[in-house]
Write a protein that binds this DNA or RNA. Sequence first.
DNA 1: TAGCTTACTTGCATATTGCAAGTGATTTTT
DNA 2: AAAAATCACTTGCAATATGCAAGTAAGCTA
Lengths: 135, 135
Amino acid sequence: MAKINKRSDCPISSSLDVWGDKWSLLIIRDLMNAKQCTYGDFLKSPEGIATNILASRLLALEENGVIEKLSHPDSKAKVLYKLTRKGIDLLPVMFEIGIWADKYYDINKERKAELKEVKKNKEEYFKAKIKELSS
Amino acid sequence: MAKINKRSDCPISSSLDVWGDKWSLLIIRDLMNAKQCTYGDFLKSPEGIATNILASRLLALEENGVIEKLSHPDSKAKVLYKLTRKGIDLLPVMFEIGIWADKYYDINKERKAELKEVKKNKEEYFKAKIKELSS
DNA sequence: TAGCTTACTTGCATATTGCAAGTGATTTTT
DNA sequence: AAAAATCACTTGCAATATGCAAGTAAGCTA
C-alpha cells in the first residue's frame, strides 16, 4: 500500500499514480456530491465497491493528501471523510470527464442537468463549490 | 476483453469503465503528443508498459471507439494508431489533469511550459489541437 | 446488558499485471 | 536470394490485485 512509485515526471502519469484506478475517482465523486461521507456511505454507491478495496483506496487517498479523516460530531463509532484542497482541486477534472461522458454515453438525468447548468457559468460554479467543500 | 460492463449511469463511472486504469490515458497522451504512433512508439514511453498490456489496452480502446488503427504508408509491417474524435475530445480532461498535477507534483519542464502557454488561450489552443489531431 | 451498527480486517478464489521469451509476417542487409 | 533484423503482437508463468464472504472489535441503542 501507499506506493509513491512515480513512473515518470509526466503530469498524466503522476496523476494516475495517485488516483488512476477504477475506484478512486468514484470516492472523490461521492465526496464532491456529499461533501462528507462515512465509510458506509461509500459502500452504498451504486457501483458496489468491495469493503476491502474501499479501505485500501481510502488509505491511499489519505496518504496522498487527497482526502482526510475527521471525527464524527455525533458518534465516536463513525468516521467522516472529506476532500482536502488537493482533492477539491480535482473539480475541473471531474467536470471535464462529465462533459466527455455526456457526449458519448447515456448518463443519468440529474447529472446531465447539472452539467448543463455548470456549463453556463463554469468559473462561478467552481468558486461556489470550492467554498462549499472547503468549509 | 472488451467488457462494456457499465457499472452505473454515472458519467465518472462510465468514463472509468473505458479508460480508468493505469495505462490507457498514457496511450492517449502519447497520441495527443505525436498524433500517430506505432506499437513500438508506445513501448518507448518512459513509463515502460509491458507489451501484452499494451496490446490489450490498444484493443480495448479501439473497441470503445477512442482510437483507430491505420495502415502505415511506408510499410505493411507497421501499424499506425491515432485518436478518433471521441479520443480527441479527451483533450480538456487531459489538460485539467495537467493543471492539477502541475500544482501538486514536480513535472517535467516541457509540459510545465506547455501548460502555461495553453492557459493563456485555452479555447484557441484546443481548437488548433483538435484540427491538428483530426487531419 | 444484549443486540445492533460502524469501520474496518482476514481468508481465499479468481482476475489482472508484469516479465521474459517466443512467433510469424515483412523489410532490410549482404 | 538468403540471412538477419524489425515489427506487431502472443504465450507462459509468477506475482500482485480484486472481489466475495465472513469475521472482529469498538461504540451505541433499547
